[in-house]
Design a protein around this nucleic acid. Structure first.
Lengths: 222, 222
DNA sequence: CGGCACATTGACGTGCATCAAACCGTGTGG
DNA sequence: CCACACGGTTTGATGCACGTCAATGTGCCG
């Protein structure tokens, strides 16, 4: 449905800001390929990535109701992005209540993931956080049919992982080594191979409910 | 408008769970009086509060589109809560697109605050986090006409503050003392008195944009 | 006058940050 | 085909912010 709307694609090289913090936008972004992160920037230069968007994700839906936000969007790897004008989305939402509900639901899913990450970063150690992220990405990649939960490819660096997890790249590295040493995951290039899914789940205290995976009929209703 | 819907009030003593994690609900909650926190519970028993709701806040709006969530709601102090059936809210949203947009916007504001807190907890030290919370509460209390940004009353304990900030109560205590020692805030009973607002803002790197304070006409549209 | 929840204090331990260097893979130009 | 440069990973040494544990203080309420 969304793909029928007027829109145009752009290419962004890795590390390019797609939307700068505080910028006012008149379109939402759909990730076609690559990897996009929403980030918050501190005055001392450090960054916190507050959401990761894989291909198929709408990263900017909020901007329809709040065109100027405090955050920015950043291409974590070379990416291609579809720009969809707010007007089109708003018109669709007003015309069809089911679409409005679907947009609302998408925003809710986003909030749910954010709430989970507040908990992860506030109350879990580095190992559990990394494990949780690997579980989450696995579930989402599988759901998006870009891989399986135990084997998928994400073009992200350890420094960027640190910015997601609220850690330094150094500590991400050591934590990842620990996971490898225990035979729980393997990594080759940018692909993650999870050998001991149950153990990773339990390390992470991962409960997939928070992803709010839409039952298919819910999705179709739109 | 919301107050016209069918609903009924309940009383909750401090520390009572209003909604348990994983519970399925058929109503949203409006805080009439007191203080409510959304929380995530870890297996080791520690808690993370992911949102604070002051009187006037709808804490549960998400549940309309996602009736079973991973989090719980907890009365941080003795509170009175209004239960509003989902059906009523959904009907209103379907009948009036402007209401649907308003609900969506509310969820977006919630997500925006959550994203900010991922950044705060992930990348700032205890002092900046506490300062940020005090600023945020000040702005919100003032907006809700429950006080001014520099003087307001919130019935929250230091342990609960710790659960919000991802710290222990001990460290909250010492950090609060530092703020007092520097003449930035005073506390008496449960009321906060901010003597040096500019300094608190700068400590917190506080930028009120993230609160997405609705322009009044936007609000009225509903 | 207890009792209870909360605030405060002190001693001590540790997970992660910081800083800085070395290593490695991959693409590039000579 | 090699030298080299550049982004990313890995390693080691050291420090500190915050956690942990446990005791003591303090205001409120029945």
């Amino acid at each position: 449905m969304i793909l029928d709307l007027r829109s145009h694609a752009i290419e962004a090289p890795a590390h390019r800001d797609i939307v700068s913090p505080g910028e006012k936008v008149d379109h939402a972004c759909l990730v076609v390929d690559g990897l996009v992160g929403r980030f918050d920037q501190m005055k001392n230069g450090s960054r916190q990535i507050t959401a990761i968007h894989i291909p198929g994700d709408l990263c900017d839906l909020h901007s329809v109701v709040a065109p100027v936000a405090g955050w920015g969007l950043d291409a974590l790897a070379t990416s291609t992005i579809l720009h969809i004008p707010h007007g089109e989305l708003r018109a669709a939402a007003v015309a069809y209540p089911a679409i409005a509900m679907a947009f609302w639901r998408d925003t809710t899913a986003d909030a749910s993931i954010l709430a989970k990450w507040v908990g992860n970063i506030g109350r879990k150690d580095a190992m559990a956080r990394l494990a949780h992220l690997l579980c989450e990405l696995g579930m989402r990649m599988e759901q998006a049919e870009l891989g399986t939960r135990t084997e998928y490819t994400v073009p992200i660096t350890q420094t960027q992982l640190g910015d997601v997890l609220g850690l330094t790249s150094v500590h991400v590295n050591r934590t990842m080594q620990a996971l490898r040493r225990d035979g729980i995951v393997r990594t080759r290039n940018k692909t993650i191979h999870i050998d001991d899914w149950p153990r990773l789940l339990s390390l992470a205290e991962f409960d997939p409910r928070f992803l709010l995976v839409a039952p298919m009929d819910q999705q179709e209703a739109a």
